[in-house]
């Protein structure tokens, strides 16, 4: 018979996951923006680069805020 360790609060797990996901996407998106020579790209690539990076940064912001809100509700 196994003696159970106390498990973590499932809501806390989800809050930390959201926070981590948000931070990874946000930082990665910003680094890509900073390292992309947007001005020298042709219009086709520039448009899609901005859209793609912008969407990743936006997703990062949404998840980071979501994670912080959920985390603070638990404390």
């Amino acid at each position: 018979m196994s003696h159970g360790n106390p498990s973590a609060n499932p809501k806390l797990i989800v809050a930390v996951q959201m926070l981590c996901i948000g931070m990874v996407l946000l930082v990665l998106g910003l680094v890509v923006v900073l390292r992309s020579p947007v001005k020298s790209m042709s219009p086709l690539f520039r448009t899609w680069s901005i859209l793609s990076n912008g969407a990743i940064v936006l997703a990062g912001i949404v998840f980071t805020i979501g994670g912080i809100v959920r985390y603070r509700r638990l404390h």
């Binding site: 196994s2 159970g4 360790n5 106390p6 498990s7 973590a8 609060n9 499932p10 809501k11 806390l12 797990i13 989800v14 930390v16 996951q17 981590c20």
Partner: peptide
């Protein structure tokens, strides 16, 4: 950072069913 919240086999193998 995330791993600090993992405490049991259920957390480890089934993510605390969360």
């Amino acid at each position: 950072f995330f791993s600090r919240n993992i405490k049991s086999t259920s957390d480890y193998f089934l993510a605390g069913r969360s």
